[in-house]
Design a protein around this nucleic acid. Sequence first.
DNA 1: TGTACATCAGTGAACGCGCGTTCACTGATGTAC
DNA 2: TGTACATCAGTGAACGCGCGTTCACTGATGTAC
Lengths: 209, 209
Amino acid sequence: MSAAAQKPARDTRTILLDYAEVSVLEKGYAATSIEELIAAAGITKSGFFYHFPEKVDLGKALLRRDNEIVETGVRAMFADAFAAHTDPLDALLAALKAYGEAASKSTASRPGCLAAAFSYQDTLFDDETRELIQHGITVKHGLIRAALERVAAAHPPRAPVDLDALADMALAVVQGGMIIDRVRPPEQAVLNAQMTLYRTYVQSLFSHA
Amino acid sequence: MSAAAQKPARDTRTILLDYAEVSVLEKGYAATSIEELIAAAGITKSGFFYHFPEKVDLGKALLRRDNEIVETGVRAMFADAFAAHTDPLDALLAALKAYGEAASKSTASRPGCLAAAFSYQDTLFDDETRELIQHGITVKHGLIRAALERVAAAHPPRAPVDLDALADMALAVVQGGMIIDRVRPPEQAVLNAQMTLYRTYVQSLFSHA
DNA sequence: TGTACATCAGTGAACGCGCGTTCACTGATGTAC
DNA sequence: TGTACATCAGTGAACGCGCGTTCACTGATGTAC
C-alpha cells in the first residue's frame, strides 16, 4: 500500500486520452477541442500534435484503447465466469452481470460508450475509424454468442432461439440503457435494471422450470 | 392523386429542419453547420437567423417537431392497436410492431434517433433543450407502461414483473438496435429483429402456455 | 570516461478558414380606414 | 379604390474568435564507440 502504487504516474499522452474520453462522452468528438485537452495536460498545442499528427488520430487512439479494454477486460470476465461455474448458464449469467456493472460505472460521471458516441458522428471519420468503432461490438457479440452456444448445448431450449439476435439483445439493452440513463433526470440505474431483466429472459429461455 | 398533393410545398423553415435532422443524425449537432443548411435551403445566412435567432433554437425546434411526431404518431399507433384488438396483449404486440417498423425507417438512410444523438452532446445545451430530449422518451415510456398495465390486468403474470423496467426495455432495445445497425456494415435490420425478440419476451411473460 | 549523434517530448509563433452572430436595410404581401 | 402602415421573409456586408494545422527550433535523455 505504498503511495507510489496509488498514482501510476500517467504520462502526457494518457492524460490527453483520459480527458478526451470524458469530453467526447459529454459533448461529442467534434465539440471536443484540442485547446481544452492541452489545458488539462498542461502542454502547448504543438505538443498535442507531437502525440497525434491529426485530430482524427486522437479518435482512433481512443477507440483502440477502448477496444483493448474489451479484448482483455470483457474477455477475462467471461473466462473467469466459465472457470468459476460448472453450468454454462450460471457462467453466462455471472459474466453478463459483471459486464453490466462495469458498463454502468464507466469513465465519466454518467454511463456512456465511446462507440455509441462516435456512431452518431461517424460521417466525420474515415473507414479505418469506422472499423475501430465496429470492432468493439463485434468482439463483445462474439463472446456472448459463444457463451450462448455453450448454454444451448447444455440446456436445449424448448423453442428454437436465434442466438445471434439474443446476443445482440445484450448489447442493445446496454447501449439503450446507457442512453436512457443519460437522458433521465437522476440516477435511476436503468442500465443495471435492464441487464437484470435480460438475464431473467435468458434464464427463462434455457432453464426448464 | 394530383401532382400537387405529392409535393406539399415545404416552406424554407421546414427545409432547414429536414436537412438539419439528417445532418445531426449523421455527424451530430456541433458538426452540423448553419452554412450547409442555408446552402440546401438556398437562402443567405441572415435568412437562417430570421428563422432561428440562435443555433440552439434550431436544436430545440428539431426536438419539438420530433416530440410532436411522438405525441401524435406513436400515440395513434397504440390507440389504433387497442381499437383493433380486444385482447390487450395482442394490441400491445401490434403497437410495438408498428413502432419498431416506424423507428427502423426513420428520416435518414440509416436508423437513428435525435434524442440519442443529442444525449451524447448534451453538455452543449441548456436545461430547456435537455428537457425536450427527455420529453420524447418519457411519453413513449408512459404509453408502453400504460399498455403493459392493461395487459397485466387481463393476463396476470405468474411471477411478478417490473412494468417500468419492462417498458424501458422496449425503448432500450430500439435505441440499442439503432446503434448496432449504424455500426454494423450492411443492412442487417438488427432493430427489427430486436423488437421481434422483445415482443416474444413480453408474450412469454403474460401468456400462459 | 568522453564525445557525437539520435531520439523524445515537447515550445513558440504564425496561418487561414469557417464558424456563429450582428446590424442596418429591403421588397413583397397583408390589413385598416 | 387608394393610401398608410405593419409584418414577413428575407439580403449583404462585416465582425471576431477559436479551430485544426504547420514549421522551424530546443533542451533533456539515451545510445555507440
